[in-house]
Design a protein around this nucleic acid. Structure first.
Length: 569
RNA sequence: UCCUCAGUAGCUCAAUGGCAGAGCGUGCGGCUGUUAACCGCAAUGUUGUUGGUUCGAGUCCAACCUGAGGAGCCA
């Protein structure tokens, strides 16, 4: 549960952190519980840590013991060749037999269990199950294949926390039933050893797990590998250490939960759009020039030419909708900006729907239904994971369409009002803004605190937005753009707009931005042959997942995040 | 690119310019329905690098390296 939690460090709250927390109050960070003195990240003081604990399966394996185990293993092999076995129970033969049972039923597996002590052979039927379905098997004999997350020996008892990728459960071994040798072997297994365990499922309120409240009374076990010296202990670790071990850190329960939420968010996105008749279409990743003309892009060698990794598929999707009406692309996107914040990755996933015959108002309706559906489905399907992440779900339960809509003009007024009301000179300084400026993250954070659900800000100044946005009728200094700002300080999760539909207006904008006109001829063509009002938006997957999970940093939402200073593992 | 901070044992962190330490982890032993168990004993260091100040530098100074947070930019 707490393996390698980032931020669960016993470090005193340093001044710069306190300062940052003060500025950021109500913003990112803040995971409700388990933060020591309640100061958020890094706030857990040494005083809270209890001294002298010791646990986890690593503790019992020295080299001598490893040699002993190896010797036992080779002895066993020798015995088997001679038709003899060990004392105690061993799984000798394991066959998973898939039977065409009811849908989603796991396959039956057949175990041959030998007992050398009694010289009898038992044939035991057990069911191979994923741990996430353990509740449906109380009282049955089951088999679980997984990894030892943690174990605690208690005399004749051994509590093993077993994870199999679908969940985590407690397996309880009892020495008199297992026999000394197998019991000792299990007791001395290192953290992350791989093994197969069979036994009877029991409901027990004391049993931890995901789902909690169930345990397996171990009757047989086979060790696939006794792992030693797993580097990520169930203790405090720093970010750098954990990121260096990201390939292993992913096994920790928080990371596991985040990846499951991420998969559900992705699924919800795809299902929502497919259900609305959108056509999923792929846009190029290698592009000839910057689509929006602003961001710093990764340059790649494309035969004899320079090319760039795509920052958006939107322009291509504007071509696609003229063929397919409603489309979306969903894939990786790349930004080479040297951003070092908890909201930025160099590589992230973005879903970009684009809709023909759609104006700004219709776009906002689509976006709010979209986001509500994503949050609603995650709440329904990933309650265990959100609980494990200690995510307070009440703010998420408010995420139901319609969302409030405020104009940029009003947003500026609101920010200025907040600025007037604050006593904090630092905040006052950060909130300085004039009409025509884009919002920075302090502005967004303070603004979203006024609402209990995501909020639309529409009608930004033309000068701070991309060149292709439709001018506001009668107000050329404003464009038909809309950002969706997530609550709790998570910032912009969607940027969208109605696109220019007039070829002359578009050409003028391209020239005003001094973009290479020739590269945009095809884009202007789209307005020359059957132009229609159309709109679209992009939603950042990682920011959305970070918000839903209540994470302090976006890097935790990606299995192998690419950040300014990290390309490995 | 700019601002702030950090780098000491495997990990997380202490150490007025004066013998480099603790907890966890690791090893050995004890105990036992545990939930980051507990009790006892033991081993563990090129203090990021280079140079400087000083009788003496983990500590002060300079440069560099690495990392973190923030700004800008953005999803």
């Amino acid at each position: 549960m707490r393996h390698g939690d980032e931020g669960r460090r016993g470090r005193r709250c340093r001044p710069e952190r306190r300062g940052w927390l003060r500025r950021r109050r109500g913003g990112w960070l803040r995971r409700g519980r388990g933060r020591g003195r309640g100061e958020g990240i890094g706030g857990g003081g040494r005083g809270r840590r209890r001294a002298g604990r010791c646990r986890d399966g690593r503790s019992y394996c020295n080299n001598r013991h490893r040699r002993r185990l190896r010797a036992a293993g080779s002895q066993r092999e020798a015995d088997e060749k001679q038709g003899e076995g060990d004392v105690g129970f061993h799984i000798r033969h394991y066959t998973a037999v898939s039977l065409p049972l009811m849908d989603a039923m796991p396959p039956l597996s057949l175990f041959l269990v030998y007992s050398r002590e009694t010289s009898t052979t038992e044939t035991t039927m057990t069911t191979l199950i994923p741990i996430e379905r353990i509740a449906a098997h109380v009282g049955e004999r089951v088999t679980v294949r997984g990894w030892l997350q943690d174990s605690t020996p208690k005399g004749k008892l051994l509590f093993m926390r077993l994870r199999d990728g679908t969940g985590m459960t407690q397996a309880v071994a009892y020495r008199p039933e297992l026999g000394d040798e197998l019991f000792e072997q299990l007791k001395r297994l290192g953290q992350e050893s791989s093994l197969i365990v069979s036994g009877t499922v029991k409901a027990n309120d004391r049993a931890p797990g995901v789902p909690r409240g169930y345990e397996i009374a171990v009757e047989a076990a086979e060790v696939l590998q006794d792992a030693q010296d797993y580097p990520i202990t169930p203790k405090d670790h720093g970010v750098e250490f954990l990121m260096d071990n990201r390939h292993l850190w992913l096994r920790s329960s928080r990371q596991w939960a985040i990846m499951r939420v991420r998969a559900t968010v992705k699924r919800a996105i795809i299902d929502f759009l497919d259900g609305r008749g959108f056509v999923n279409i792929d846009t190029p990743i290698i592009t000839p020039s910057a689509a929006e003309g602003t961001s710093t892009l990764f340059e790649v060698a494309y035969f004899e030419e320079k090319a760039y990794l795509a920052q958006t598929g939107q322009l291509y999707n504007e071509a696609n909708i003229m063929a397919l009406n409603k489309v979306y692309c969903f894939g990786p996107t790349f930004r080479a900006e040297k951003s070092k914040t908890r909201r930025h990755l160099a590589e992230f996933w973005m879903v970009e729907p684009e809709i023909a015959f759609c104006d700004l108002e219709e776009l906002m309706r689509l976006e709010e239904e979209f986001v509500s559906a994503i949050v609603g489905r995650t709440l329904a399907e990933r309650a265990n994971e959100l609980e494990l992440l200690e995510r307070d779900v009440t703010p998420l339960q408010n995420v139901v369409a319609p969302f409030p809509r405020i104009s940029y003009d009003e947003a500026v007024q609101r920010v200025l009002a907040i600025r007037e009301a604050t006593d904090d000179p630092e905040l006052r300084d950060e909130l300085a803004i004039e009409w025509g400026d884009d919002f920075g993250s302090p502005h967004e954070t303070e603004l979203t605190k006024q609402f209990d659900r995501p909020v639309f800000v529409y009608g930004y100044p033309t000068q701070v937005k991309a060149f292709y946005m439709e001018p506001w009728p009668g107000r050329p200094e404003v464009c038909k753009s809309v950002d969706l700002l997530a609550p709790e300080g998570y910032g912009e999760i969607i940027g969208g707009s109605e696109r220019m539909s007039d070829p002359d207006v578009l050409l003028a904008a391209i020239r005003r931005h001094e973009l290479p006109e020739a590269n945009y001829q095809w884009y202007i063509d789209l307005r020359r042959f059957g132009s229609v009002p159309h709109s679209g938006f992009g939603l950042g997957l990682e920011r959305t997942v970070a918000w839903i999970c209540g994470l302090e940093h976006i890097r935790m939402t990606s299995p192998f995040p690419r950040t300014l200073n990290r390309l490995t593992p």
